[in-house]
């Protein structure tokens, strides 16, 4: 990898030539070399501002009274900073139903994410590194499940849940998320695990490792980046889910998305509750993202085999 960067750096004359340079350098490095760092940074800042604008708008709306919000747009605070108030958040926290829905979301999201990651990591190890009859057929089945839309399962699962008596409960929502999250999670992790050099596992076997020891002491540390990405994706997916909650969660077990949705009225909306609640629901995934960010380290495999 460093060699490629070196050649690009040493030989700038090759870069402008599209016929010669194109197959050698990646799209990203070509963009970088075309734009130059100053212009590139300006573009990046512009994109970042564009992306952040709605978030900022939501945040400021959540800090203004409903009257102000209906009278003028959020940018009015730029001239009248006195409009800012924490009243919305205060009333949000007084709203027992909404606070309960926040904890429901946590109770749904955390177990779903943990279960998916744990089960998928174990299954992915088996699919990647254990030999058992029917392994490839089973994995084919997992890949096949990737393309089954979850909507087809709503009615049958609802009936099964009714029979089991878990319809409307948090458990039902969690199980549904786990079931539908696993195929992708197994697929992702298996491909990552399969890319770990076989020699490493064999070395661990020679060193006296049983399968579970190898999994825990070699595969999991090396699979860190993939597992972190998977955890974040799953967390966001479940946290933001509305459909599954609408179908399977009853009023007392509803997550935030469903609670927010119920604040939408036919003629207008409770903008104070929605803006502060929506912002709150957005902050948690962001925190999760930043917490896991340090695991996205490139080059963890460097030095393993050469």
């Amino acid at each position: 990898m460093s060699t490629r960067e070196d050649t690009a750096a040493v030989d700038p004359a090759a870069a402008p030539d599209p016929g010669q340079g194109a197959p050698q350098s990646s799209l990203a490095s070509r963009i970088v070399s075309r734009l130059g760092s100053g212009l590139l940074q300006a573009v990046l800042v512009l994109i970042a501002v564009f992306w952040l604008m709605p978030t900022l708008g939501l945040f400021i709306s959540s800090l203004r009274s409903p009257q102000d919000n209906s009278a003028s747009g959020w940018w009015a605070v730029l001239t009248e900073p006195s409009q800012l108030t924490l009243e919305n958040y205060a009333s949000l926290l007084d709203n027992e139903g909404f606070v309960a829905s926040f904890f429901n979301t946590v109770l749904i999201t955390v177990p779903s994410t943990v279960l998916i990651v744990v089960i998928a990591a174990l299954a992915a190890y088996a699919f990647a590194w254990l030999e058992f009859p029917g392994r490839d057929w089973l994995f084919l089945g997992v890949v096949g499940l990737l393309v089954v839309p979850l909507q087809v399962a709503l009615v049958p699962i609802a009936q099964i849940y009714g029979g089991l008596g878990i319809y409307g409960s948090i458990l039902g929502v969690v199980l549904f998320h786990v079931g539908y999250g696993l195929p992708f999670a197994i697929f992702l992790l298996r491909n990552f695990f399969a890319a770990i050099p076989r020699d490493l596992l064999e070395a661990a076997r020679m060193d006296g490792g049983r399968e579970f020891t190898i999994f825990r002491r070699v595969i999991l540390p090396l699979g860190g980046p993939a597992i972190a990405s998977l955890a974040i994706f799953q967390f966001l997916w479940v946290w933001n889910d509305l459909l599954v909650a609408l179908v399977f969660a009853d009023a007392q077990n509803q997550p935030m998305t469903k609670a927010l949705q119920s604040e939408m009225r036919q003629f207008g909306a409770n903008i104070d509750v929605i803006s502060s609640g929506a912002f709150l629901s957005m902050v948690v995934p962001l925190l999760v993202f930043f917490a896991f960010q340090r695991y996205f380290v490139q080059g963890v495999m460097a030095g393993a085999v050469k």
Partner: peptide, 20 residues
């Protein structure tokens, strides 16, 4: 006997060091 119980040690062509 599985590899772990044979009490032999192997040096791999790729070295197979644990990178972490």
């Amino acid at each position: 006997t599985p590899a772990r119980d044979r009490d032999v040690a192997m040096v791999f062509q790729s070295y197979a060091l644990y990178p972490h």
